[in-house]
Design a protein around this nucleic acid. Structure first.
Lengths: 230, 230
DNA sequence: AGGAGTTTGTGAACGCGGGAACAAAATGGA
DNA sequence: TCCATTTTGTTCCCGCGTTCACAAACTCCT
């Protein structure tokens, strides 16, 4: 129905679908590494831990990249999803706050292999600035603007203590960063047009604790889990 | 309508609400630390970064803990939410996989301060076993069962490489762990009754990248026949 | 005491996402 | 060529979650 050329970026993809595309991408990479060239929606859905109908609907938002009666070409679909997400190119990223978590993030190889390149590590603590982490020298937080301009950075990662998070976010936004991944246990407010995603380690544990408590409390039934695999 | 006593655990709280309760808890703690004794739903909603109507509806699933015309008693509400989530007691947790991320998790003070106690660090690598991390000696993965029985552990954290994740999960489930927090970039399948939550660092970045790409691609411009080639 | 002003708790409308079921399209065999 | 088989792409329906809007309940001032 909709005329969609291969460079048509005007289609609207539901948020829920966008959040699953990286999972499909990972599953496809795993399949490709196993030497599998073609797969059905059922196969891929199993590998990704979702329902096959949901998978097909998700993929249909991207276009018709499968062949009825046959399935999907693993490499082709992988490329199409990568292109849609935008990870065929490398995204430069800065990490602010080189504590325990920042350390781990700087060393995380999954970033580079999935389309991201850490161009700088920043910290406000003079005791940390100058240290070498993951082969990179930690620079003072005030260098943020220079680094962002030099590498045209659009994505920033906050791994500072909670109290510093809002300040860092404000500074990032002022300099032109438009996407923030926040690991600090704090709500950061940003103006319209800036995306923030948050990852809170203890919140995830608390959610598990809630369900765990209910299991223990006898209760009536199993608390429907989110992605419980079959 | 529903008769709800303070110890009634049969009420069903929507998943979306459960996921926000820890955020409210954090916001309340922040308010309490600022010396604020009472707050309105508007205040708390702002602090938590949500809509006040949503906040009130969420809290209404727990009971009527506010006072009309006045607001909420910060400490009282905080206790009620903590009790509902189940973090008035301490939950013992084991962390498997003491690489970069496991290291950071072991050192993360937010766990202990929010109701969780890391009772053991485990790794399958003999080169890591025996090291002291966060004041705890890393033990061999095979000690899992002994530790889980000794401390009555219900929650396990997986911070291993992707290939090991499913094995570790299977082992955890076999031993009786019923809640898993998975940091490995892999889908883990578990039987019914076991809860799994996953945190994938690069997936979060990929979601940001998708939106970033769309911002760059001519944004919301009217979808002319030709995809904006600007 | 009574009314004005606040703020909570909730009923109802609405929109999004999930899942089943089916039509459309491709392959392969007779 | 034509039919059976397979698997995708899509439509329809349902349930959950979000939001609006308002009645109920409490305080404070006169």
């Amino acid at each position: 129905m909709t005329t969609r050329s291969s460079t048509d970026a005007a289609r609207v993809i539901p948020e829920a679908t966008v959040a699953r595309l990286p999972v499909y991408l990972r599953a496809l990479t795993a399949l490709a590494d196993s030497g599998i060239r073609t797969c059905s929606s059922e196969d891929l859905a199993t590998a990704a831990g979702v329902n096959s109908a949901k998978l097909r609907k998700d993929l249909s938002y991207l276009g018709s990249y499968g062949t009825r009666g046959v399935g999907y070409d693993v490499d082709y679909l992988r490329y199409q999803i990568a292109r849609e997400i935008g990870v065929t190119q490398d995204w430069p990223v800065v990490i602010v706050g080189i504590g325990n978590l920042g350390h781990a993030l700087a060393n995380y190889s999954g970033f580079r292999s999935r389309g991201f390149r850490v161009v700088a590590l920043l910290d406000a603590d003079p005791g940390i600035v100058g240290q070498t982490v993951a082969g990179v020298v930690v620079r003072p937080f005030d260098d943020l603007e220079e680094i962002v301009r030099e590498h045209d950075v659009a994505i920033g990662v906050i791994a500072t203590p909670a109290v510093a998070a809002q300040d860092v976010a404000d500074r990032m936004v002022a300099i032109g960063i438009t996407s923030i991944l926040n690991f600090a246990p704090a709500v950061v407010a940003v103006p319209e047009g800036v995306d923030v995603r948050k990852v809170d380690l203890s919140i995830e544990l608390q959610i598990l604790a809630y369900h765990e408590q209910r299991k223990a409390n006898g209760a009536d039934a199993a608390p429907a889990t989110d992605g419980g695999a079959a």
